[in-house]
Amino acid sequence: MAKTSIAIIGATGNMGSAIAKALAKGPYRLLLFASDKEKLEALKNNIIAATPSADLECTGCPVDASWEADVIIPAVPYGAEKEVVEKIKSVATQKIVISIANPLNESYNGLVTAPGTSAAEELQKLLPDSKVVKAFNTTYAADFAQPVINGQQVDAFVAGNDDEAVDMAKELVETAGFHPIVAGELTVSRTLEAMQLMLIQLTIKNNYNWLAGFKILHNHQ
């Protein structure tokens, strides 16, 4: 059976590199793209040193990476997503696209999306023929290296309208070391993005050092 291929666009950023390092431990083929080729090569060497079994390839073009991939992760800030999408739209048809972005304003005291929508829903509008799913937006980059905080495994929320895409995102969340929680349809992304805005505000206020996450405590019946 062919390996699932995952394109990470913006692989050398904080989140992109954290996701790449985590998913390299799984049974996937990673296609990494970033505009800085030296940084990308350094990331590749770093991953192979930590995970010699990693199956990954650096690519000089986001379109080539996305064309070959089953799953596309635009690991770029919300403001840069539109530009990435315009490049990959023609090759993203029927593919799973994971929205990790949080549409934060510059002062971290609000979201730039209009009420009644979310970054994930806006991405779905830009890619009407793709299966957009929200994941990894409530997990800091530092959490990937330490997905168990204070003895508790960090929860990571997944939201989407397509069952196949949601299942794939759940699998990736588990591979990365988090506990996946399917939160609902893509519209739930509005809540998830607002939750991360609050966590960022609390992190700044209480000096969590960008290592913090959500945990839902419940009674196991």
Score class of each variant (00 low, 15 high):
Met1Lys: 09
Met1Ala: 11
Thr4Trp: 02
Thr12Glu: 08
Asn14His: 11
Ser17Tyr: 03
Leu23Asn: 06
Pro27Cys: 06
Arg29Tyr: 02
Phe33Glu: 06
Ser35Met: 11
Ser35Val: 06
Asp36Pro: 03
Asp36His: 13
Glu41Gly: 06
Leu43Ile: 04
Lys44Glu: 13
Lys44Tyr: 06
Ala50Met: 08
Thr51Cys: 09
Thr51Pro: 01
Pro52Phe: 07
Ser53Asn: 11
Cys58Pro: 00
Gly60Asn: 15
Gly60Ser: 15
Asp64Cys: 03
Asp64Arg: 07
Ala65Pro: 03
Ser66Leu: 10
Trp67Ser: 14
Trp67Met: 12
Ala69Pro: 04
Ala69Phe: 02
Asp70Gly: 09
Asp70Asn: 14
Val71Leu: 06
Val71Met: 08
Pro74Gln: 06
Ala75Glu: 05
Ala75Leu: 05
Ala75Lys: 02
Val76Trp: 04
Val76Glu: 03
Tyr78Arg: 08
Glu81Asn: 14
Glu86Arg: 10
Lys89Thr: 11
Ala92Ser: 15
Gln94Glu: 15
Lys95Phe: 05
Ile96Ala: 08
Ile98Asn: 08
Ser99Lys: 02
Ile100Thr: 15
Leu104Asp: 04
Asn105Arg: 08
Asn105Trp: 04
Asn109Ala: 03
Gly110Ser: 09
Thr117Gln: 10
Glu121Arg: 11
Glu122Phe: 00
Glu122Arg: 12
Gln124Thr: 05
Leu126Ala: 15
Leu127Glu: 06
Asp129Gln: 15
Asp129Ala: 13
Lys131Ile: 02
Val133Asn: 04
Asn137Asp: 14
Ala145Cys: 00
Gln146Thr: 14
Pro147Ser: 05
Pro147Val: 03
Val148Leu: 01
Asp155Met: 05
Ala156Asn: 15
Gly160Arg: 04
Asp162Ala: 03
Leu172Lys: 02
Glu174Asp: 10
Thr175Asp: 07
Phe178Cys: 09
Val182Tyr: 12
Ala183Ile: 05
Ala183Glu: 13
Gly184Asp: 11
Thr187Trp: 02
Val188Tyr: 10
Arg190Thr: 11
Glu193Asn: 08
Met195Val: 11
Gln196His: 14
Leu202Ala: 12
Asn209Lys: 13
Trp210Gly: 00
Lys215Gly: 03
His218Thr: 11
His218Ser: 14
His218Gln: 13
His220Gln: 15
Gln221Asn: 14
Gln221Pro: 15
